[in-house]
Design a binder for these strands. Structure first.
Length: 241
DNA sequence: AACCAAACCAACCGCGAGTTG
DNA sequence: ACAACTCGCGGTTGGTTTGGT
């Protein structure tokens, strides 16, 4: 759905728009989004341009499903930092905060449902033993579970609150991951981006144009948080535990 | 084959923090 | 010091795809 309001486009981006945006980010860097939005002629807000670039067009992005390794990392970092998606994303080169957020929601929904089913069986042993049976008492509060990123007892604070008050132990989550990891998929490489523009104009990784890079920020984070993992400009992940 | 529900994902919104004049 | 502006983050929404009946 594309809504026109005061000449501002909303909704899905077209290939043409993507191409235009890529060109102008190549020219001016990935910082001054309002400026880029204006000079590019795109009828988009700067905010919208930035989002499109960061979540979809950026050359360092991976496509495809998370690898089991990435899933483990997300869960581990989320248990440390809560819903700090952008910070978590910095530790997973090629993944965006949005992607991780979506993964988490989906994953947690699955875990919550599994847990719910188990609890129902435990709580009402006298009822029919099938998992489809109607629960008699306790239900897990699914909404708050999502809201707090897995901590139903309250909002996450910072690292000092690590590991407090979780319903699900990490063991539960690892078990769940292990069950899922039978369908292992290969990581998908970055070159997909370069196929995006069939006209073939775009270009080298555009990070080089700007001073800013999430990977650089991540390096700062590594210093701040004790350097749990180290990587270089999204080309490899070396997890040091 | 058609329908429905669940899962997935792209995009928008509001707010707070940082920057600039 | 302060107001205006810009950017980034986290939460949420809505469209599309997938899977089950």
């Amino acid at each position: 759905m594309v809504v026109q309001e005061e000449n501002i486009r909303k909704g899905p981006w077209t290939e043409q728009e993507d191409f235009q945006l890529g060109c102008f980010v190549g020219l001016f860097g990935d910082r001054r989004w309002d400026f880029i939005a204006k000079v590019s002629g795109l009828k988009r807000t700067g905010k919208s341009c930035r989002l499109r670039w960061v979540n979809y067009l950026h050359p360092g992005l991976k496509r495809g499903k998370m690898t089991p390794h990435e899933e483990r990392l997300v869960l581990e970092l989320h248990s440390k930092w809560g819903n700090r998606w952008s910070r978590i994303a910095r530790k997973l080169p090629g993944r965006t905060d949005n992607e991780i957020k979506n993964f988490w929601r989906t994953h947690m929904r699955k875990v919550a449902q599994e847990k719910k089913k188990k609890d129902m069986v435990i709580v009402s042993p006298s009822s029919s033993s099938t998992i489809d049976s109607v629960p008699t008492t306790i239900e897990i509060g699914e909404e708050s579970f999502y809201d707090t990123g897995g901590n139903p007892l309250g909002k996450h604070k910072e690292e000092e609150d690590d590991q407090k008050g979780y319903c699900y132990t990490m063991d539960d989550i690892w078990r769940d991951i292990d069950n899922q990891s039978t369908n292992v998929m290969k990581p998908i490489c970055d070159e997909q981006f370069y196929g995006n523009f069939s006209s073939g104009v775009v270009v080298s990784p555009l990070w080089e144009y700007g001073q800013y890079s999430p990977w650089k920020v991540a390096e700062e984070d590594n210093k701040l948080y004790g350097g749990m993992n180290v990587y270089d400009h999204g080309e490899a992940v070396v997890l040091i535990t």
